[in-house]
């Protein structure tokens, strides 16, 4: 069930979402997003560019955090703005924890808005994809 306006409080955490990409998922994403850059599925190619191995698409992590927000606000809510930076690389077959926290709850122009901080975390606890979003609740 999605969150209600009444339930939201500043500092509360969003229910976490755990992801772990197989290389197959990266190929699915290449097709779904149209990003066919080979560093995401061709190991030899990735190494030839100086990477240690395959890496997870940044935009896929953006979409993971988008799912975290969607699952939290449901279909009555809307994402008004959402952005993140790709600060650290994530690799296939390793957990990517998607997390978020409410920063501000307010009403503006008749809309019930919530600012949240979101991020992905790797198994070492490093935030690889920090971001911020503003969502509207019913």
């Amino acid at each position: 069930m999605s969150v209600t306006w009444e339930e939201v409080s500043e500092g509360m955490e969003l229910p976490e979402l755990k992801k772990n990409c197989s290389t197959q998922q990266l190929v699915l994403w290449a097709a779904g997003s149209g990003d066919f850059y080979q560093i995401h599925y061709d190991l030899e190619f990735a190494k030839s560019t100086g990477l240690d191995g395959l890496i997870v698409h940044g935009a896929l992590k953006h979409a993971f955090l988008g799912q975290l927000l969607h699952d939290w606000i449901g279909n009555e809510g809307r994402i008004k703005r959402f952005g993140c930076s790709y600060r650290g690389m994530d690799v296939p077959n390793q957990d990517i924890m998607c997390r978020g926290k409410v920063v501000k709850k307010y009403e503006e122009n008749g809309e019930r808005l919530v600012d949240v901080q979101v991020w992905t975390e790797n198994p070492e606890g490093k935030q690889t994809t920090p971001g911020t979003a503003t969502v509207r609740l019913a």
Binding site: Y37, G50, G58, H62, I79, K80, R81, F82, S85, Y86
Partner: peptide, 11 residues
């Protein structure tokens, strides 16, 4: 070589 630095979408 290229890396994606970040994405922000306003809806």
């Amino acid at each position: 070589r290229i890396l994606n630095g970040g994405t922000e979408i306003e809806h």
